[in-house]
């Protein structure tokens, strides 16, 4: 298929998703006031690379994700795909959606409870005509489910979301995001709603798919440890501003901004294991000695 080979070329040549001077103001209802959710944010996401966007709740991480996904209209600034400004509606926007997809934070909210798993993956395949020739839609759905380790796919596809666990649902959401043959993935805190025990599995799956597909991933999180582990670059956001931006190790080992230092101090440190317990015990011992 001509379209397929074109996509192959594009994939090899990579592609770039660029966010330039993005600003988003939210109007406050009832008052003539505006809240600046993101203030002049710029970054470039290359195919095959991962950028982690770290920050506390309300720092504007999700607004960046929504702006990239065209769910909210940026107040100022531009988003460019392969150097061209992206279309805001119509066929151009649909082409953009084929390339850029998203995984939501809440796997319980992002799948429609009414529809079976297969429906969620089938729709993007149909909309973007992403099924290769000589393959039925059902086969492609099953292939995608197997790629996210949901097996047996024939058993999973007809189930409804509520019959799956959180981790399984998030895998479905990942399969859906990959379905159109996307090149860029925005993962908005993809594991924060999952049990701690299955987080790593989902993250490793994302990392493997990224390598296989040469995806550019924007990994939004508030967990510095996984950010360092999974991404090439880290951006730290604080109240709408990007306060620190650089290679992961650089940001973690040599933090410049106060807020990054606070974040790092709050993260559990394996070298200090048991330190607090020992401190408490020492205090108790001292108190006992006094008596």
């Amino acid at each position: 298929m001509a379209d397929d080979s074109a996509q192959q070329v594009r994939r090899e040549s990579g592609g770039v998703l660029e966010v330039r001077n993005l600003v988003k103001d939210y109007k406050v209802r009832g008052a003539h006031k505006k809240i600046r959710a993101i203030n002049d944010v710029s970054f470039t996401l290359e195919a095959g690379k991962t950028i982690a966007l770290v920050g506390e709740s309300g720092s504007g991480k999700s607004t960046i994700a929504k702006s990239i996904m065209q769910l909210v209209k940026p107040s100022e600034g531009q988003i460019l795909l392969d150097g061209k400004p992206i279309a805001r509606h119509g066929a151009g926007l649909r082409r953009y959606r084929k390339d850029v997809q998203m995984v939501f934070q809440d796997p319980f909210g992002s799948l429609n409870p009414f529809h079976p798993v297969g429906h969620h993956i089938e729709r993007p395949l149909r909309i973007h005509r992403a099924v290769p020739e000589g393959m039925t839609i059902e086969e492609k759905v099953h292939e995608l489910l197997e790629r996210v380790n949901l097996t047996p796919a024939a058993d999973i596809a007809p189930r409804r979301p509520h019959e799956l666990s959180g981790g399984q649902r998030q895998r479905v959401a990942i399969a859906r995001a990959l379905a159109p043959g996307s090149r860029f993935l925005v993962a908005d805190e993809p594991v924060s709603m999952l049990d701690v025990s299955i987080r790593l599995g989902v993250l490793n799956l994302l990392a493997r798919l990224q390598r296989q597909e040469n995806l550019g991933v924007l990994y939004i999180t508030h967990d510095l440890a996984t950010a360092r582990h999974f991404s090439d670059e880290i951006m730290v956001m604080y109240r709408g501003d990007v306060v620190e931006q650089g290679p992961s190790d650089e940001v973690i080992l040599n933090p410049q901004h106060e807020y990054t230092k606070t974040l790092l101090a709050a993260a559990p440190n394996p070298e200090r294991i048991g330190q607090m317990r020992d401190e408490v015990r020492a205090e108790f011992a001292a108190a006992a000695a006094k008596d």
Binding site: M69, R94, D106, S110, F114
Partner: peptide, 25 residues
Amino acid sequence: RDYVAASRIAGERPLRIVAVEILPN
């Protein structure tokens, strides 16, 4: 709901979102 946002991101048309994603619920 996120699933409505997800189907917008998938590229569904508004009419279909109302008929297929919202009305059944």
